[in-house]
């Protein structure tokens, strides 16, 4: 092969190897040199978290925040069912963390987490644009009458996939009680499926029993997997109105109608009233979560999973969430 022996050539070879090693070492991602804080966040938090991530990384340049978005239940499942390691889980429904994470990990006496912190609240609003039908007429007083008009198209997220989807149905159920009507929920939503979605109503509770496939039979109501698709339809005129979180509507610079506190799921003093709206999912999309969702104030919560790799950095990031975020677009209101 013609190798030339000798101390000098061996030295040269060692130098070449060192150079190769150093060269290839450069392939490792620069991110690996920083402390990666891995965050799971509900879809409605992605816009504000993008801004907080930037601010946090400027403040702590040795950290690299990696945010991954899912529906709230899916966020938790990434940790509990799929065994993925994250430092922070932030969800749009505070009740989910005790239900799904205050449970022991497999082959361990420790829970997935033992505490969580509330860091934001929001309410349901009716989002629309200047192009929406009756945009010039709609108000906090007549919003449900506008939505009930046959030529108005209404949208909400799939209640099976997105908490804002079942919360939209709860708002309509609460509206029937608040306005002393019996036709709001039926005309706008449940009556737009074939067969119609069964609703059981008594003095205390309105219970909506959802079908296993959420497919409307008319163009009156449109259901999409997540808010992002509804917002896109709103902007393009595919729908006229959508029930959305206020922080999402504000984050997207959409016009919106505020709804009365008694029905908007945003005021804790109405918590008992909200309980009268109950949505039953017809199938268990996940075996770990109950089929019944009961109306409650919308509160965002965050926790550090027991297996977090960087719990200290996670605590610092959570402090950032609970601090002053008044300049962060789309951030839920502080508790």
């Amino acid at each position: 092969m013609g190798f030339k022996a000798g101390v000098t050539s061996l030295g040269s070879i060692l130098c070449i190897c060192l150079i190769i090693f150093l060269f290839f070492s450069g392939c490792t991602d620069e991110r690996e040199e920083k402390t990666q804080v891995r965050v799971l966040a509900a879809g409605s938090l992605l816009l504000p978290f993008e801004q907080i991530e930037k601010r946090f990384e400027e403040k702590y340049p040795e950290t690299d925040v990696l945010v991954e978005g899912h529906g709230s239940i899916q966020c938790i499942r990434q940790v509990t069912d799929l065994n993925r390691q994250f430092d922070i889980v932030a969800v749009a429904d505070d009740s989910l963390i005790p239900i799904l994470m205050y449970r022991p990990m497999p082959k361990s006496e420790k829970n997935w987490t033992d505490s969580h912190e509330l860091f934001g609240r929001t309410e349901m609003v009716l989002a629309y644009t200047n192009k929406s039908a009756y945009a010039g007429e709609i108000s906090t007083e007549n919003w449900y009458e506008i939505l009930m008009k046959p030529d108005v198209r209404f949208g909400c997220a799939n209640p099976v996939l997105d908490a804002s989807g079942y919360r939209a149905i709860m708002v309509l159920a609460l509206a029937d009680r608040f306005y002393n009507r019996t036709d709001i929920l039926d005309t706008i939503y449940t009556g737009q499926f074939s067969p119609g979605i069964p609703v059981r109503m008594d003095e205390l509770v309105t219970q909506i029993l959802l079908p296993d496939v959420m497919k409307p039979s008319s163009r009156k109501v449109t259901i999409r997997d997540g808010s992002i698709f509804l917002l896109s339809l709103l902007q393009t005129g595919g729908i006229d109105y959508a029930l959305e979180y206020r922080c999402v509507a504000e984050g997207e610079n959409l016009k919106y109608i505020s709804l009365p506190d008694a029905i908007n799921l945003g005021n804790t003093s109405y918590a008992d009233n909200y309980k009268s709206a109950v949505v039953d999912l017809n199938f268990k999309r996940f075996s770990t979560i109950d089929l019944t969702r009961i109306g409650a104030p919308i509160v965002y919560a965050v926790c550090i999973p027991a297996l977090a790799e960087h719990p200290e950095e996670a605590r610092v990031f959570i402090a950032e969430l609970t601090g002053d975020n008044s300049d962060v677009l789309g951030m839920p209101y502080p508790i």
Binding site: M1, F3, A5, L10, I13, C17, F21, T28
Partner: peptide, 23 residues
């Protein structure tokens, strides 16, 4: 000696590639 040095060099190259983490 020549052959030994050659093998040593090849081994070092393989080792360096392995350690580089790029594979």
């Amino acid at each position: 000696m020549n052959q030994k040095t050659g093998w040593l060099a090849v081994s070092l190259i393989v080792l360096s590639l392995f350690m580089s983490g790029c594979i």
